[in-house]
Nucleic acid binder design. Structure first.
Length: 434
RNA sequence: GUGGGUAUAGCUUAGUCGGUUAAAGCGUCGGAUUGUGGUCCCGAAGACCAAGGGUUCGAUUCCCUUUACCCACCCCA
């Protein structure tokens, strides 16, 4: 008890008891992404630190205080704090952006951020994400949102609110920043300390402050939407029309400010109120400048990240259904040492036929084997004693119904098993084949 | 980084106003007469009561420190 080595703070073990939940969402996410024409990509868990500094942004909290970095052989590496940077880097490095555009990829990976853990926030967390590079169309924005929505719906989630906003291009944002700074300049004595710092670096974050005083002050602050240039405004309008056309409900939230520097124009979040303070299940947007910033051509792009822990948490709290875990199909119960090799051999035959088969490996008594098989939740059980071995025939017991049917142990073994299991499932093997 | 809370068997929790062998449920293992499970019944194993220090004749119970975990701020998925 005293000297166990425990897992690092903020990490989680996913045990066999819970793995079905992960398999469920991973399946949904893969199938949905593929339906939308996205292909899976896998990138390294760590990258050179410079990649994140240049993409996520030198002044962001993520880069300034949340990265796990190590120096190895004089190079500084960092465990990825998010998926976009590495993915775009990989697309560039593998020449994918010189192929026909748009390029559409998705990934399932873990990210690392050194924050204080709390409900829905871990230091190692898992993300499903997609990136689409090479489309400036607002329909691409709609498509990406649609894909996220599709995943959430397929998971069975309810009460997930979509918030969207546009933070404009660098040109309109510059004008907006000036206006914001001018507005808050009158209230510098009342703003909280963190907001005072934000005023210089990123005044938009003040709009997001939870302090009631700051909220009160920010209530009448100018809105980014009033400062959008023609192009950004048209883009945002078309996106809204597209969402309406697809019957996607959303609300415009001028206070959404993404904490990663690369975002431009559209930003969005899917928020759940069922998992505590960290309610953002999915967040993303457009980052038209990022590829160029990383040394590529001027190619517009967009994507999102979806927190799988938060997704599963919401599903649990809403009572959503998960796939069943895989369970034992046939348990072979050897009654003595003579029967053990026979059990092993029969199990091998079953496995070759694609059936999950197990047999006693703990030298349990016969009765204990029955109990154990019951705990495994096996569909069928076969008792192998001296009688069975000498007659080359045993009983295949259906553990749900208790019914037993004879099964030959010779060359007809698999044939008999198939016959009986199909009859149990469909009434008769013939109707199964129809 | 800043707050608040919690720390007793594998899990979920009692409990000791400081006093000999720390309790229950679940789980695990085994039994309930000879080769058939699930319910019920019986039994067993399993905890130096997070760690270190202090007060005391005596601490798992009180005090301090540390650590871990949880929740919130912050930030974000």
């Amino acid at each position: 008890m005293a000297k166990y080595i425990t897992r690092p703070n903020g990490t989680e073990d996913i045990t066999p008891k819970n793995i079905h939940k992960w398999l469920t969402v991973e399946k949904i996410v893969r199938e949905t992404a593929e339906k939308f024409g996205f292909s899976e990509i896998r990138v390294p868990t760590f990258e050179t630190t410079e990649l994140f500094q240049r993409s996520v942004g030198e002044t962001t909290d993520v880069v300034q205080k949340e990265m796990y970095s190590v120096t190895a052989k004089e190079t500084v590496f960092t465990l990825r704090p998010e998926g976009t940077a590495g993915t775009i880097r990989a697309m560039l490095q593998n020449g994918m952006l010189s192929e026909a555009l748009p390029q559409k990829v998705f990934y399932i990976l873990s990210c690392f951020r050194h924050e204080r853990p709390q409900a829905g926030r871990l230091r190692e967390f898992h993300q499903f994400g997609i990136e689409m590079a090479g489309s400036s169309s607002p329909y691409a924005d709609a498509e990406v949102i649609l894909l996220a929505k599709n995943v959430l719906d397929t998971c069975g989630l309810k009460n997930i609110i979509l918030h969207i906003n546009s933070i404009g291009c660098p040109e309109c944002r510059a004008k907006y920043y000036d206006a914001l700074k001018a507005y808050f300049a009158n209230a510098t004595d009342q703003l909280c300390e963190t907001c005072l710092g934000r005023l210089e670096r990123n005044p938009m974050r003040i709009l997001d402050c939870k302090s009631p005083i700051c909220q009160e002050i920010a209530k009448d602050a100018p809105l980014i939407l009033d400062f959008l240039c023609e192009d950004c405004k048209a883009h945002f309008d078309t996106l809204q029309t597209a969402l309406h056309d697809m019957n996607i409900e959303f609300s415009i939230d001028p206070h959404i400010v993404r904490g990663l520097d690369y975002y431009t124009k559209t930003v969005f979040e899917f928020i759940s109120t069922d998992i505590g303070a960290q309610g953002t299940v999915c967040g993303g947007g457009r980052y038209d400048g990022l590829i160029e910033q990383l040394g590529g051509q001027k190619i517009p792009a967009l994507g999102f990240g979806m927190g799988l822990e938060r997704l599963i948490l919401t599903m649990e709290n809403q009572g959503c259904e998960f796939m069943e875990s895989s369970h034992c199909n046939v348990y072979l119960a050897p009654m003595d040492d003579a029967a053990r090799p026979v059990a092993m051999n029969l199990a091998a035959q079953l496995r070759d036929a694609g059936i999950r088969a197990e047999f006693d490996l703990a030298n349990r008594t016969f009765k204990a084997q029955m109990k154990y098989a019951d705990k495994l939740g096996t569909d069928y059980l076969i008792v192998l004693g001296s009688n069975e071995l000498s007659e080359q025939s045993a009983q295949l017991k259906n553990m749900k119904t208790g019914q037993q049917r004879p099964i030959r142990l010779d060359a007809h073994f698999i044939e008999d098993y198939t016959e009986i299991s199909l009859t149990d499932l469909f009434g008769s093997p013939e109707s199964a084949r129809r």
